[in-house]
């Protein structure tokens, strides 16, 4: 298992798409934060506004599934699906005597690690750096940092469920293009479910899903019950989707 994780990390480091995404995420994040902080781009009514952290408003862009899906699905397409289709290197791992369960877990862990870097860490670190560089370091006090820490910790947990969904799609489709398109469609569907009127059962499901939690975790205050619920939703989603992914991968015939 350790060997597989090491191999996946080695591949991630040498994955050109990963570095392109890192560059794009860093550049875009720095630009957005700069424009927001200097007041060129006015963003109002964001979760950070409510928390008195309007300097971090640009971060809200990176917390919207419709946006971060583009980053995560691209990475999934060019890090996971491509191994099944273009290069076919997944064959080597399966033929090497590695358990499919271990292969799946190693890929999931490293893919999630890469996704967290480009979708959560880079925008967050860029935001903090820009705030300090542009002379607004005073907003980074203990209270605000506790809020950001709590919100992003819970967000990351939900995000792990999301990467599991995208990984499942990547394994099912076997193709980077299809992975990107299907994940975009899936995220649009979730967005539509959020906005449109829906039956009670669907509403109940949605309210207890990671998609609802992506915004809930940024509430200024959360009770212990809400935090526990959020953690439970994240873990349950992760477990259910991962089990589906493992079953699909175990039954999959490698071409």
């Amino acid at each position: 298992m350790n060997n597989l994780i090491k191999a996946e990390l080695f591949k991630l480091k040498r994955n050109k798409s990963f570095w392109v995404i890192i560059g794009a995420s860093t550049g875009l994040s720095a630009l957005l934060h700069y424009l927001v902080i200097i007041g060129w781009w006015q963003m109002h009514g964001t979760v950070f506004d409510t928390a008195g952290l309007s300097e971090l408003n640009a971060l809200s862009t990176f917390t919207v599934p419709l946006f971060f899906n583009l980053i995560v699905s691209t990475l999934a397409g060019f890090f996971i699906s491509i191994e099944f289709s273009q290069s076919g290197v997944i064959k080597n791992q399966v033929m090497s005597g590695n358990k499919r369960l271990h292969i799946f877990i190693a890929k999931y862990l490293v893919f999630s690690f890469g996704s967290i870097i480009v979708t959560i860490l880079i925008p967050l670190v860029t935001a903090l750096v820009m705030v300090i560089l542009l002379g607004h370091g005073d907003v980074l006090n203990l209270t605000n940092m506790s809020y950001v820490g709590r919100a992003y910790s819970l967000f990351t947990l939900q995000f792990l469920g999301y990467t599991a969904i995208i990984m499942l799609l990547a394994i099912i489709t076997d193709d980077s293009g299809k992975t990107i398109i299907l994940s975009i469609l899936f995220t649009i569907l979730m967005f539509a479910i959020e906005k449109l009127p829906k039956p009670t059962f669907i509403e109940l499901l949605y309210e207890n899903s990671i998609f609802n939690q992506f915004s809930t975790v940024f509430k200024l205050t959360m009770s212990t019950g809400e935090i526990t619920m959020s953690i439970l939703i994240a873990f349950l989603s992760l477990i259910i989707v991962s089990v589906c992914g493992i079953v699909v991968f175990k039954k999959k015939e490698i071409k």
């Binding site: 994955n15 273009q86 290069s87 076919g88 290197v89 997944i90 064959k91 080597n92 033929m95």
Partner: peptide, 13 residues
């Protein structure tokens, strides 16, 4: 075992 099945599976980059 060591195996090549169909084409050799390699990382092109």
């Amino acid at each position: 075992i060591g195996a090549i099945v169909e084409d050799p599976a390699l990382f092109p980059n």
